[in-house]
Amino acid sequence: MTVLPEACGLLVVRTGFSGQDAWQAVRAALGVTDEESFVEEFQDEVEVVNDPAYAGLTSDQLLALLPRGYTNPILVVVDSAALESAEMPVLVVDLVEERGRTFRVIPAELPSIQINLSIANMDFFEFADSADADGVFRGFGTS
């Protein structure tokens, strides 16, 4: 398997290929502005990998394919579960604190997670432990 591409920002890897319309909806949702208007900053920091060579790979398999020197604290996976849900909860994978730990997040909350982790304002567990009972983080105070 090919190593994931070098990236200056956050890698978002598509592993689910169940439908192009669903994929386009996730892509559009990743650009939704959150309450703090992080969308423009966030879009500039995202590298999307849309290659069928990564179809069906697990988060553990993707961890082994990260490029040397990738410094972002998380990896984002758009898998079949994200594409088949109306909420499009993408998988967030920890690369620092508990490497490989995961939770899902609705796309509108991803910029906040990325920014807070990249400046060490918050820790991965704070978001993961705040996910709802179904394992999806929808923001603080939504449970």
Rank of each mutant, 00 (worst) to 15 (best):
N121M: 11
G100H: 02
N116T: 04
L30N: 06
T58L: 14
V93E: 05
A82V: 10
P52V: 14
T15S: 09
V90Y: 06
Q114F: 15
Q61P: 08
A108Q: 12
F42R: 06
V96T: 13
E97L: 01
L57D: 02
T58Y: 00
A53Y: 06
Q114G: 05
L95Y: 10
V78E: 06
L63T: 00
Q61H: 06
N72V: 08
Q114D: 14
D94R: 08
F124A: 01
E6R: 14
R27G: 03
L91R: 04
A22L: 00
E40K: 05
L57E: 04
A133V: 13
V13Q: 13
Q24C: 01
R104Q: 13
S80H: 09
A53L: 11
D129C: 07
A25G: 05
T142C: 02
A128E: 13
D132T: 14
A64L: 01
G16M: 07
E126R: 13
G19I: 10
A55L: 08
T58M: 04
G139N: 00
F17L: 09
E97T: 08
V26N: 00
I74D: 10
V12P: 02
G139A: 09
R101D: 15
A55Q: 15
E47D: 12
D132F: 11
F140Q: 01
E126M: 12
N121Q: 13
G135C: 12
G141S: 03
M1Y: 06
G69Y: 07
E35I: 09
Q43E: 04
Q20Y: 11
